[in-house]
Design a protein around this nucleic acid. Structure first.
Lengths: 219, 219
DNA sequence: AGATTAATTTAAGTTAACTTAAACATTTTT
DNA sequence: AAAAATGTTTAAGTTAACTTAAATTAATCT
């Protein structure tokens, strides 16, 4: 029984829920680049095997079993990302894709070794928490997405969404990396774009971009 | 179109030929743990697509296209093995299995990075040559299998076959690793077992074992 | 509330990579 | 050279993971 695809579904569902979105079949289909019908099929299987619960139009929920599986995969993924970045030296915007390939084909033993070599990292290079072996998840500072940061406010980037290589490349080239401090200098009502000050340079960010950047919420 | 299984077939064929064996469907089936019928099927496809040529009962040959593919995969495999051993620190007898998982899911870019980090290694930890990016294969010292080394002779281990984890574990625990010097002190005609001196200890090796160890042929 | 739009499921079919069992072909043994 | 053993192929069927197109259901809009 192949196990790869099931894991992929669970990871997508997990990451969707992590971003506190409602996860429906369409969303999953888009992320995996497959048809809705395929998702319906798999959802039936995952439901029967108690990985998820699902009510049409209400979204997909992870059950204990599915959550565990997903967390395990996310752990693999993020440990690989960190390793690829810190030890192998792959670029920030390429590690997600590469880790996605590797995450399915590494033994627990290997993952644990990588974790030791990296000295038990808590967050991956895009700022996402790396689940520990026991399933616990490192606590992150309270975050809000950049589009909700008030004008004049200063904060530091805590994490970025990593599902588009193009977006990551843009962020990287703009210096918008983890822990970078920035200040919102302007907000444009008509298209919700904002202007931020980073490294003493002004940057205009569309709403689509700013929604994918998360900064510390200091209140 | 999935590419994984085709690659596996090619690798097995390549490695078989490398050991100058005749490679027939049965051998491939055994190595991949599948039925002969499945191999027949795939062989048809590989023949049609000009990866191999094949005459029943005469063995399988690699054509140019198939050889290139196979060499590419072997390169990936052996670079991963070397990396897992030298950088990650996995045990000598576990790296083959782990590399087999990883070899299918790494980009060329990643493999090339690993090669740089390892400073362009020529041989993997089991003594097999690592094909370069251009397909050329490092020359090895002339070898013979240990069972053919004359009594009283001294030589050094150049490579070992790596298809059984159990064998590798035994070799490792017996100190029979790459470059280790040994001397044949006795040969037993009735079962073709031999006695060798390694690190000043006597070891009895069955024919099955000695045929999987290759030492420098100094003549 | 009915119409429109969006989300979901069903139905039927495809593809890749297998399986087992039986048939067939070639080598090897006696 | 016939018998036995080994190797190979065929035939029919299975499974997982998809696809497209049509049908159905729910949510949203006016």
């Amino acid at each position: 029984m192949s196990n790869i695809s099931k894991e992929d579904y669970l990871r997508v569902i997990y990451k969707g829920l992590e971003e506190s979105r409602m996860v429906n079949p369409t969303l999953v289909a888009e992320h995996l680049n497959i048809s809705n019908a395929a998702v319906t099929d798999m959802l039936k299987k995952l439901t029967k095997e108690k990985y998820v619960s699902y009510t049409p139009y209400k979204g997909i929920q992870l059950l204990e079993k599915g959550k565990m599986e997903a967390i395990k995969l996310v752990r693999r993924h993020r440990i690989w990302e960190t390793f690829l970045f810190k030890v192998i030296g792959l670029p920030w915007y390429k590690i997600d894709q590469e880790a996605e390939n590797l995450e399915h084909s590494s033994s627990d033993e290997l993952i644990d070794r990588l974790e030791v070599i990296l000295n038990y990292p808590e967050f991956d290079p895009h700022g996402h928490p790396i689940p520990r072996k026991d399933g616990r998840i490192p606590k992150q500072k309270k975050c809000i997405s950049l589009d909700r940061l008030g004008i004049g406010k200063v904060s530091a980037i805590q994490k970025v969404n990593d599902h588009s290589e193009e977006l990551l490349m843009f962020l990287y080239k703009s210096g918008l990396v983890i822990n970078k401090k920035l200040k919102v200098t302007e907000k444009r009502e008509f298209d919700n774009s904002i202007v931020v000050l980073v490294d003493n340079k002004e940057l205009v960010l569309s709403e689509k971009i700013s929604k994918n950047i998360f900064v510390e919420d200091m209140r």
